[in-house]
Simulated scan of single mutants.
Amino acid sequence: MALHNRISRKELKERILKDNTPRTTISFYQYFPISDPTTFRNHVYKIFNNLGVLGRIYIAAEGINAQISVPTENFEKFKEALYSLDPALDGIRLNIAVDDDGKSFYVLDVKVRPKIVADGIDDPSFDMSRRGKYADAETFNKLANDPNTIIIDMRNHYEYEVGHFENAIEVPSDTFREQLPMAVEMMQEHKDKTIVMYCTGGIRCEKASAYMLHKGFKNVYHLEGGIINYVNQVKQKGLENKFHGKNFVFDQRLGERITDEIIAHCHQCGKPADTHVNCANDACHLLFIQCEDCAKEFEGCCSKECQEFIHLPPEEQKKKRKGIDLGRNVFNKSKERLGKLLAKDK
């Protein structure tokens, strides 16, 4: 069988939007040694593809990281298959999505990467096995109530903007690799305090806790299973919820509603809003927050310039898009470069 997708992503997306099969969105990760990531990747692809799994899976010598959706009727078969892949995966925690419409993914991508989360760490003495202590929801709440505890958000700035824990410190950056050294520098004067780190599903804060210990910090925790697991535990155990707003997720949903509070604002008019969208202009694709009124006024675009662009003839749009590489194009980045690129063909 083929070990990759042969159908266009556009067609696959249309299929999943029309398909009413109940699906469950799941995320999981595990740090463990994989001697042959490519062979392991091919094995994973064949098994998961046969079960109708969709989503994004990264495999590296250091482990596996996955955000996927599974046909609900195949959930138990999927668990059995996952747990049998390697002894290190037997019984690992699965984070079940909090706010799920079953349309989170429309294609199965299983890729081999240098690392399962890009961290920028090149120190050969760094040891991922020496990581911080797990904090479940109950422990997290107790630590959060202690004035000697510092809570650090190890997510990107646009994730923090729409939702975060009470009193959490933001490490303002676009990438995790930028955050790690910034977090160490910001916490130098607090080495005697308890540090609790958190992220979406646990993979980033777990590595961050190990990095903080590597840099000489002593009392470091990381939130077990991240925000997703915390919210599920809070609901199951009837605990106080200390997370406010929306949890940003990296799939088609772009967010899980945790509380009714809207703590962010539309990037165009400033009204309360926390809906992330990508600019409708494919030559821009900027990730930004847009309210319903601005979505109508700008037709899903981030600016009047982009709105004008989407009304150009398709061939002219295609010509102007050619050669443009926007990288990680998110709201806080300057659009001056984009304007210059688009202006070259006018």
Rank of each mutant, 00 (worst) to 15 (best):
R6H: 14
R15L: 08
I16K: 15
L17F: 02
K18D: 00
T21D: 00
T21H: 10
R23D: 01
T24S: 14
Q30N: 11
Q30R: 15
S35N: 09
R41I: 12
N42D: 09
Y45A: 01
N49C: 03
G52H: 12
G63N: 11
A66G: 04
A66S: 12
Q67L: 09
I68H: 10
K79F: 06
A81R: 08
L82D: 06
Y83P: 10
S84A: 15
D86R: 01
A88F: 09
L89K: 07
G91L: 06
I92Q: 06
L94S: 08
N95R: 15
V98M: 03
V110D: 03
V110N: 01
K111S: 09
V117P: 00
S129K: 13
G132M: 02
G132I: 04
K133R: 14
D136K: 05
A137D: 01
A137K: 05
R155F: 10
H164P: 02
F165A: 09
F176W: 11
E178T: 05
P181G: 11
A183C: 10
V184G: 13
E185M: 11
D192M: 00
G202K: 09
A208I: 08
L213P: 00
G216P: 12
V220Q: 02
E224G: 07
G225C: 12
G225A: 10
V231F: 05
K237W: 13
F243C: 07
G245S: 08
K246S: 15
F248H: 14
G255R: 07
I258C: 05
D260F: 03
E261V: 09
I263M: 01
Q268T: 06
Q268V: 07
H276Y: 15
N278W: 13
N281A: 10
L286S: 01
L286Y: 00
F288H: 02
C291A: 04
E299Y: 09
E299V: 05
C301P: 09
I310R: 08
I310C: 12
Q317A: 04
K322V: 07
I324F: 15
G327W: 10
R328Y: 14
R328V: 11
V330H: 02
S334L: 04
E336D: 11
L338F: 03
G339Y: 11
L342T: 00
L342E: 01
